[in-house]
Simulated scan of single mutants.
Amino acid sequence: MIRTSRGDRVRTKAVSAGRRGLGGRFRRSVPLALPVGWGAVAVAWKFGCPLARQPGLPVRIATSIVFLTVGTGLVLGVRRQLRRELARVRAVAEATQQVLLRPPPARLDGLALAAGQLSATRGASVGGDLYEAVATPYGVRIVVGDVRGHGLAALGAVVAVLGSFREAAHDEAELGGVLRRLERALQRHLRERARDEHPALGKGDPEHPVAEEFVTLLLLEVRADGRLAVLDCGHPAPYLLGPRVERLPVGEPLPPLGVLPLPAVLVPHTAARLLPGETLVLHTDGAEEARDRRGRFFGFEAALARSAGRPPEGVVRQTHEALLRHTGGRLDDDVALLVVRNDRVRVPAQPAEPGLRRPRPAPSTHC
């Protein structure tokens, strides 16, 4: 048996990687080889062939055809290469965006879920909106938020908030503890951005003042009995689709994260329930503030009423289609929807089994 040292293995891997890199560069240069070869032949023919230097219209036409063919081939080769590179970049971007804003599971602890987002940035499937739903020992916990602004510039805050929520939702027994973890994660992100954009030795104001960045957020917990616990940080209240469409009460709203510190005591609002068969629609403000070319607002509540009775994925799809028709496909802000339907079955009280005696009442002690 021949044993190889670690250094040999490292050098072997380096050589293999170098060969793969050379092979990749060679494959990328193949589409350009043909037009470059044509160009070399055309230049050699123009300056080395005596016939090409002779005057006359036929020679000029032939020379023009040769150079036009070469130029067309070169443009097509470059275009094909750019399209391949763009396809690879889009595939990587879509995979990254799916990991960042992953779709929720279709069913989660007896709840049916569906979500979707429309980005105002062309070519991006995520922007400044965020959502997530996880099953925990304390109930199904859901977050929906909206970072100030939209598009790819807001992804840093989205990553900070979602990453913190995915851990805190399982670790914190109280919903208020989850919200404080999100606040601390956003503060760390803003401090890091401040150091990057406006270092101590730099001069002038940062291009995007961090002091103006904040996140509106709705934190919700669906407990086993359908009772809802809600903490609202300046976010639009969700809609409840039951016998009619109505706003869900969320209690006194808190300031958005990043604007003011949270109060010392956080008490979730627990006066509402999600009964079996009812649907809850959480959204960002882009759904209610979307306008058409005449400046008319989108009838979000009416669109939800038309989709009542549909499954969650049907509510998301029909609402998005109505929104795109109203705006002509031109959105000024990102739009995120997360729809939750309670599919838990309410079990009625069971009668006592036959043969089991009911306990006798205690005898009276009165004379």
Score class of each variant (00 low, 15 high):
residue 263 P to R: 05
residue 286 G to C: 11
residue 197 E to W: 14
residue 246 E to R: 13
residue 230 V to W: 07
residue 345 V to F: 14
residue 87 A to R: 04
residue 25 R to N: 13
residue 73 G to F: 08
residue 130 L to Q: 04
residue 203 K to S: 14
residue 65 I to E: 09
residue 266 L to Y: 01
residue 113 L to I: 05
residue 206 P to G: 01
residue 219 L to Q: 07
residue 42 A to M: 04
residue 12 T to W: 14
residue 23 G to F: 12
residue 265 V to A: 15
residue 127 G to N: 01
residue 62 A to T: 01
residue 45 W to Q: 00
residue 121 T to G: 13
residue 235 H to K: 02
residue 14 A to H: 11
residue 141 R to K: 10
residue 134 V to Y: 02
residue 3 R to E: 11
residue 210 V to G: 02
residue 66 V to F: 02
residue 10 V to T: 13
residue 350 Q to P: 03
residue 111 L to N: 09
residue 295 G to E: 01
residue 290 A to K: 05
residue 254 L to A: 06
residue 213 E to L: 01
residue 342 N to Q: 14
residue 237 A to E: 08
residue 186 L to A: 02
residue 44 A to H: 10
residue 71 G to P: 03
residue 334 D to P: 03
residue 28 R to I: 03
residue 196 D to C: 06
residue 329 G to T: 01
residue 88 R to M: 12
residue 237 A to K: 01
residue 178 V to N: 02
residue 6 R to P: 02
residue 319 T to Q: 03
residue 19 R to L: 05
residue 246 E to M: 07
residue 152 L to Y: 08
residue 294 R to Q: 14
residue 260 L to T: 13
residue 231 L to S: 07
residue 367 C to M: 13
residue 229 A to H: 05
residue 19 R to N: 12
residue 354 P to N: 04
residue 236 P to W: 08
residue 140 V to A: 12
residue 327 T to G: 05
residue 26 F to T: 07
residue 178 V to L: 09
residue 228 L to R: 04
residue 141 R to T: 04
residue 226 G to T: 07
residue 3 R to D: 13
residue 186 L to G: 06
residue 331 L to F: 04
residue 112 A to L: 10
residue 121 T to W: 11
residue 216 T to D: 11
residue 26 F to E: 11
residue 327 T to H: 06
residue 367 C to F: 15
residue 280 L to G: 00
residue 148 R to K: 15
residue 3 R to G: 15
residue 204 G to V: 08
residue 22 L to C: 03
residue 363 P to K: 12
residue 150 H to M: 10
residue 88 R to T: 06
residue 90 R to C: 00
residue 79 R to G: 00
residue 20 R to L: 12
residue 121 T to E: 15
residue 209 P to L: 03
residue 67 F to R: 02
residue 281 V to F: 00
residue 215 V to W: 11
residue 79 R to C: 08
residue 363 P to L: 11
residue 8 D to Q: 15
residue 284 T to R: 03
residue 366 H to Y: 14
residue 154 A to D: 05
residue 202 G to M: 09
residue 342 N to V: 12
residue 1 M to H: 15
residue 123 G to L: 11
residue 282 L to K: 07
residue 167 E to L: 14
residue 120 A to P: 06
residue 27 R to W: 01
residue 253 P to H: 07
residue 349 A to G: 12
residue 244 R to C: 08
residue 107 R to M: 05
residue 16 S to D: 15
residue 54 Q to K: 12
residue 21 G to L: 09
residue 35 P to T: 00
residue 176 G to I: 06
residue 174 E to T: 01
residue 185 A to L: 10
